[in-house]
Design a protein around this nucleic acid. Structure first.
Lengths: 211, 211
DNA sequence: TTTAGAATATGACTTTTGTCATATTTTAAT
DNA sequence: ATTAAAATATGACAAAAGTCATATTCTAAA
């Protein structure tokens, strides 16, 4: 089997050198380049095509997320994100941009090597906890909005607002005047302690309030 | 390192025996049991605790999804799904029930061993294609909003509106004037052919436009 | 180097929203 | 029969939101 060619991108000298040593002593791997940011990693890849990028997220100039996007779009190799944080948002972005893996940096050298091989074999690897939150988010889109304390008519108004209708449109739909719609909205906003209709729509749809 | 103790659950004799042989010849693994359905696998696990279950999905009596649920809830080990199909729905269910991996059965013995090790080390493994669809579904399912044609700055505005922020709040967050925020919104509304910010927020969050 | 696009800003203006006090009618509960 | 809540309405006003024309700066592409 050919060696797996690797480019390491991390802004910490310590991490870069450490990984290079770990991987270079293993005959299954060959570190063909080390970069201290995304742009450098991409430059290196153009000279010498790697199989896998080990990519940090936080880096100056061009971060790992952006770099991943470019690398995947231009088919320069597979990206395994290696980072210290497991922020949900970052994971989402990384995967959306085509990263094949997302690991935190506290794995033993042996584990790390296994996972690089897994990615090289065409399998995505994910920190267990991240995998969980990924699937949870997927269905638990609980609105959280509580209908208690609202009359049927108030709910008509709330639902209409959450469809993006204007006061005039709501008035027409419900055969009442615009003024009445306004009155309802004022009172609903007060109950939910929100300041305007858009916040109400967002709250109804996502269960999240600003602030 | 201790051997990784494995229970294989698959209704095909051929697959069971094949895997057993592949794993038993490797000193890193020990197959402590073979089951032809989920229930048998659970019985076996109660006598002799495994590290990993290699679990097929389609099995008589108790399928892999159900078995996974039970195994995870009762902490009997980690489950790696090994199947012939990559149906999106099944993947979702398996992961929701706590499976740590989902692979299709066409990997080489060497790859399979690597992935079992990865799972044993606490990393989830996913077929690449599945990983992609997972992240796509995660936001594309509900939203349907197309970010194409928007600059990063415009997206900042759109996201802020979809959080229910006012122009003033957006201006503060992005360090620009309220007027500039208004300009952005006017142009975004024109592009989407919407008439006000609430409709934009709703469209961004649900993918639905009024009328 | 010219050009185009992105990001920003301003001011004048219109429209929509939201607030508030007040009021009428209907309906359901006491 | 009385009462309270729900549904509705008005008008006056204040505060946001949205429109439009115009302008500056910076950067990336032709």
């Amino acid at each position: 089997m050919d060696k797996i060619k690797i480019i390491i991108a991390d802004d910490s000298d310590f991490v870069r050198d450490g990984m290079r040593i770990i991987l270079d002593v293993d005959e299954d791997f060959e570190v063909i380049g080390c970069a201290r940011n995304g742009r450098e990693a991409i430059e290196l890849a153009k000279e010498n095509a790697p199989d896998i990028f080990l990519m940090d997220i936080q880096m100056p100039e061009m971060d790992g997320i952006e770099a991943t996007k470019y690398i995947v779009e231009n088919n320069l190799g597979k990206v395994l994100i290696l980072t210290t944080f497991d922020d949900d948002e970052l994971v989402q972005n990384a995967l959306k941009n085509g990263a094949k893996g997302y690991l935190i940096k506290n794995h033993t050298p042996e584990h790390l090597k296994q996972m690089i091989k897994s990615v090289h074999n065409g399998t995505g690897v994910m920190e267990e906890a991240i995998l969980e939150s990924l699937t949870k988010n997927a269905d638990a889109k609980a609105s959280g909005f509580c209908e208690d304390g609202y009359t049927a008519r108030e709910m008509d108004i709330i639902k209409a607002v959450a469809e993006g209708l204007s006061n005039k449109e709501i008035a027409n739909r419900l055969f009442i005047t615009e003024g009445t719609v306004k009155n309802y909205i004022t009172s609903i906003l007060a109950k939910e302690n929100l300041s305007h209709r858009t916040a109400l729509a967002v709250y109804y749809l996502t269960g999240k309030k600003q602030g």
